[in-house]
Nucleic acid binder design. Sequence first.
DNA 1: GTGGTCTAGACCACG
DNA 2: GTGGTCTAGACCACC
Lengths: 134, 134, 134, 134
Amino acid sequence: MKGADFVVRINKASSKPYYEQLVLSIKEDILNGVLTAGDQVPSVREMAKRLLMNPNTVSKAYKVLENEQVLVTIKGKGTFVKVTEDLPRDEIRILQVKERLKELVIEARHLQISMRELSDWMNGFEQELGGDLQ
Amino acid sequence: MKGADFVVRINKASSKPYYEQLVLSIKEDILNGVLTAGDQVPSVREMAKRLLMNPNTVSKAYKVLENEQVLVTIKGKGTFVKVTEDLPRDEIRILQVKERLKELVIEARHLQISMRELSDWMNGFEQELGGDLQ
Amino acid sequence: MKGADFVVRINKASSKPYYEQLVLSIKEDILNGVLTAGDQVPSVREMAKRLLMNPNTVSKAYKVLENEQVLVTIKGKGTFVKVTEDLPRDEIRILQVKERLKELVIEARHLQISMRELSDWMNGFEQELGGDLQ
Amino acid sequence: MKGADFVVRINKASSKPYYEQLVLSIKEDILNGVLTAGDQVPSVREMAKRLLMNPNTVSKAYKVLENEQVLVTIKGKGTFVKVTEDLPRDEIRILQVKERLKELVIEARHLQISMRELSDWMNGFEQELGGDLQ
DNA sequence: GTGGTCTAGACCACG
DNA sequence: GTGGTCTAGACCACC
C-alpha cells in the first residue's frame, strides 16, 4: 500500500452519497496508477477515521468494490486491489453502462452539447486516466 | 401530438424512478422526431391512465421537463413541446453532464470497455437520435 | 444554522403558494446573512412541524432551491446552504427576471408610481439585503 | 379607437395565462400612446374573434382592467380607455407592487444580477414606454 | 435520524 | 376539460 501517497477525495458538500464518491475515487486511483494490483487499501476503521465518516459507510463502499471485482478482502490480512485484466467481461454491467451512455447522449443533445464536444471530453478523460488499464 | 404513434416506455421493475424514466422517454421522442415543437403531450391524467401511474408522478415529470425548457405547460390548455428558440446554453447542467461522463468513463475502463467501443456506441446513438435537433 | 435566530414567515392567507413563500424567505435569509454557506437548514420534517404544514410542501420548496443552486441536499444528512462557488450565470432565468421587471414597470406606471420612487425602493432593498452576496 | 392600428400581442406558447397577457398588452399600449384616454377598445366578441380566443377570456381581461380603473364600460356604447391621471393613488396595490419589486430584487441577487444591471433595465423600459404617462 | 418516491384524494385557477 | 397546490401516509435509501 502506498499509504500516505494516495488521497481519497470526498466532497462532503456534494449531493452524491459518500459511499459512491469513495467507490469512484478508488476506481479512479487505480486507473491513474496511484493504486495498483496487489496494493493494500486502508482498513475500514482506518479509512473511516481518515475521512471522518462512519465506518458503515466505508464498509458499504468496500462491499460494492468487492462485488465489482475491484477489491478483494482476505480474512485476517486486509483488503487489496485485485488483479483485473484477465477477468471475463461482465456483459450485464457493460450493457448498463451502454444504457447510461445513451441517456447521457440524450441529455447532452437537449443541452445543445455537440457530439464533437462529447468526444473531446471523452478523449480528455482518457488522457487524464492513462491510456491503458494500469 | 401524433397520438398512437408515440409510445412511452416505463419499466416498473427498474430502480430508476418512474418520473425520470418518463422524462428521458419524452426527451428521446423529441430527438427522434416523434414529438416536435408545438406538439401537445397527453394530459397529465391521460398519461397517468395510460401508464397506470399516479397523475402526480406524471406531473412531476412534466414539471422537470418544463424546468429544463423542454416543455411548456399552459394552465387550462395542456402541456406542449417547446419551440426550440435559440436559448442560451445552461452551462450549469452542461458541467454536470461532463462530470457524469467522466464517471462513466471510469466505470467503463474498469469493465474493460475500450475507448473505441465507447466512441462507437456514442456515434451509434447519434445516428439513432437523428444527426440534428429536430 | 443559527437555529432560533432565523425565522421563516409564511402567510397562510396569501394567495402565493406556501412553497414559494418559503423559497423566497430562505433566499432573503441568505442575502441578509442570517443563513450563510454551509449552514444546515431545518430538516423537512422539523420545518414542516414549525410551519404547521405538510413535509411534502417543505420538500418541494427545498427542491426548488436545490434546482436554483441555492441549497444542496445530501440524502441521509440534511439540506445545506450551498457554497457560492463561481457558478456560471443562469441566463435563462435572468431573462425571465428581466421580463418580470418590465411587467412590473408597466403596472407601476399605471399606478402612478414614478420611476424615481421605483429606483428609491430598489436602492432601499439593496441596503436592506446587504450590499454584497454574503 | 385606432382600430387596425393597435395590435394586441398574445403569445399562445407562453405559460402566462391569456387573460393576463391581454391585460398587460393593453396597459402597455396605453403607456406607449397607441391607446389614449377616451379611445374605444374592440368589443369582447370582436376582440375574441381577432385573437382567436374564448370570449370569456377576453371578458375576464376587461373586467380586470375595469377593476383597475384602466377601462370603463358604458352600457350600450362600448368599452373605453379611462382618463386616469387625476385618480387618487391606490396605495394598497402600490404596496403590492413594492412587495413584488422586493421579491424581484431578491431573486435578481441570487442570479448574480447587479443592481446596476437592474437599474439599466428599468431605465430602458422607461424609455421604451415613454417618459411620462400619456 | 435524514431526504426521495409514489399513491390517493381534495380543492382551486384557467379556458 | 386542463394543470397547480396541498395534505396524508406508505415505503425505501443513506448515514
